[in-house]
């Protein structure tokens, strides 16, 4: 059977496991980023893909680059962080946010929202549109965080391929949008650029869910399809973090296929719409073990 040298999938999985361990250790010791609590199957895929993209034949070769080429770090973090999303992905979720969550948030004089793992910002801009249309944006602040500085830079720019527009418009309508999504972007040269006024109350910042702490008192935390990449203990750690950040009665919105039932911290959240993975922080302070 013929093997292509550029295809890391052809490596022996036993050896690759050792290589992955060493890569994780190198990232931790050299750069201070700890991926040891990431779910192994997806982490291995991503590291493999990075090795391929960077023309490293093996994960070991990638580890060498990670150790010696300091300029490579942003690229590595980009490859290991949350993948891109869509605007109004899972429209039913945004409809519940619009119809059930925002009316409650409206009772606060100042609304703080933390989107953890914002990737290229598709959902940040979606949120900003929801708030704008609910007349709440002037007293809202969105903290959009991600591990990857490259992703954050992309999110700030708000530029996406125009071919996404059709699907995103359908999503926007299905989420209960009252206008046309085209009101919020301009299209040119195959790209769409979101109205930069939408980010006037957005703060983009680097934040690592593994090691960084709570930085704001939030009324809503969105963290969709981020925890699926984490092991059970790290998932639980993040739920504690969200709990600590949320005001009593604050909302938590997770990805549609995420399950938190087994996590110890899940008892501190009560479902608002279990199928859409929207919860509220229940009373009581978080009890540190």
């Amino acid at each position: 059977m013929s093997h292509e040298a550029t295809e890391p999938a052809a490596a022996d999985p036993g050896i690759e496991e050792i290589e992955l361990e060493l890569f994780v250790r190198a990232m931790q010791r050299r750069h201070g980023y700890d991926f040891s609590q990431y779910a192994p199957a997806s982490l291995k895929r991503r590291v493999r893909q990075l090795a391929t993209q960077l023309d490293c034949g093996t994960i070991s070769a990638l580890t060498g680059r990670a150790l010696h080429d300091a300029g490579l770090l942003p690229k590595l973090l980009e490859g290991l962080s949350v993948p891109v999303s869509d605007m109004f992905r899972d429209p039913a979720v945004f409809r519940v946010l619009r119809e059930q969550v925002l009316p409650v948030l409206a009772s606060y004089p100042q609304i703080n929202i933390w989107q953890a793992g914002c990737a290229h910002g598709e959902e940040v801009y979606s949120l900003a549109i929801l708030l704008e249309e609910a007349g709440l944006y002037e007293r809202s602040q969105i903290f959009a965080t991600d591990l990857s500085t490259r992703a954050l830079q992309h999110a700030r720019e708000g530029i996406f391929p125009v071919r996404e527009a059709q699907q995103w418009s359908r999503n926007y309508q299905a989420a209960g949008g009252s206008r046309s999504l085209a009101d919020y972007y301009s299209a040119r040269y195959g790209l769409l650029k979101l109205d930069q006024r939408l980010r006037r109350h957005v703060t983009f910042a680097q934040h690592n869910l593994v090691s960084d702490r709570v930085f704001c008192e939030a009324h809503l935390v969105l963290c969709r399809n981020v925890l699926i990449y984490f092991s059970n203990p790290l998932q639980d750690h993040c739920l504690q973090l969200f709990h600590d950040s949320l005001v009593r009665g604050g909302f938590l919105c997770l990805g549609l296929r995420e399950s938190i039932d087994a996590a110890a911290a899940s008892t501190d959240f009560a479902p608002v719409d279990a199928a859409r993975r929207i919860y509220r922080r229940t009373g009581g302070e978080w009890r540190r073990p």
């Binding site: 779910a39 192994p40 199957a41 997806s42 991503r46 699926i228």
Partner: peptide, 11 residues
């Protein structure tokens, strides 16, 4: 996963 549990990804 190696421990024979399911994992999902949106990669």
């Amino acid at each position: 996963e190696a421990d024979r549990h399911f994992a999902l990804s949106v990669d």
